[in-house]
Computed example of a mutant assay.
Amino acid sequence: MTWLEWWLPEQLSLVASLSLVVISFFTSALTAAVGIGGGVMLLAIMANLMPAAAIIPVHGVVQLGSNLGRLLTLAGLTDWRMAGWFSLGSVFGALAGGQLAVSIPPAFLQLALGSFILYSAWMPVFRLPAGRKSISLLGAGTAFLAMIVAGIAPFVFVVLKDLFSDRRALIATQTAMMTTQQVLKIVIFGSLGFVFSDWYGLLVLMVGTGFAGTLSGKYFLNRLPAERVQPILKALLTVMAFRLLYMGYGSLG
């Protein structure tokens, strides 16, 4: 066993681990550049490579690292009042969702992830009424879902986008909201028994490459229109979602 294999989780092959490290860079750069898509793309790839029970908590740590890097670069544009009301609702939603997440069988988790990724790729747009009650309810609902299916950032992005005239401010505020939910996710999964130390080496590498991707993606924030990326992203997510649904149904049989 090489030192690299010793450092990385034994639940994954060396190729799978290194693939996730590289993919973390590109998916983080994608989110920094166009505002959405990277987190769900990373989730879909992780769900096809990792044990079902580890997907949501590990994804939470990696996304926290990516979000912190993005938040540091865009903090001055964040609507902290809106993010605060969202975070308040998130506390209640995360506590409720955590209890359900640890009791879901792996096959049903794969089905839930596949269905949600498919919905995230093709979901309809609707408007969110302005006001602290609506924002808090959005936080509670998405935090509940985040404990089970993780990749809810595109949903929040779509719901909030009509409330912002500046795309950079939208991305900054959404990043602050997602950062809160990732912290809650890590704390709750840890308290429920998930052993993050088993994944320490992979987490360090993925967070590091994710931060590098964030810095790279910021350069393209005003240069890469989301409209050019979305058709390709939708196609890739759709293929991965159907593979997860196939795996889930196969496990049930």
Rank of each mutant, 00 (worst) to 15 (best):
A143P: 09
F144M: 13
L145W: 07
M147H: 08
M147I: 10
M147E: 12
I148C: 10
V149H: 02
A150M: 14
A150T: 15
G151L: 11
I152Q: 03
F155R: 07
V156W: 04
V158A: 11
V158F: 08
V158K: 10
V159L: 15
L160I: 10
K161L: 09
L163C: 09
S165C: 05
R167P: 11
R168S: 14
A169C: 09
L170E: 13
L170M: 14
I171L: 11
I171W: 00
A172P: 07
T173A: 10
Q174R: 06
A176E: 05
A176P: 05
A176N: 06
M178E: 09
M178G: 08
M178S: 12
T179Y: 00
T179C: 01
T179F: 01
T180H: 11
Q181I: 05
Q181F: 03
Q182F: 00
Q182T: 01
V183K: 06
L184I: 07
K185N: 07
K185H: 05
I186H: 05
V187D: 11
I188R: 13
I188D: 12
F189G: 06
S191G: 15
G193D: 06
G193V: 11
G193R: 12
G193K: 10
F194M: 07
V195E: 14
F196Y: 15
S197L: 03
W199M: 02
G201T: 07
L203K: 02
L205N: 01
L205W: 12
L205D: 05
G208A: 13
T209M: 11
T209F: 11
T209D: 03
A212F: 10
A212P: 01
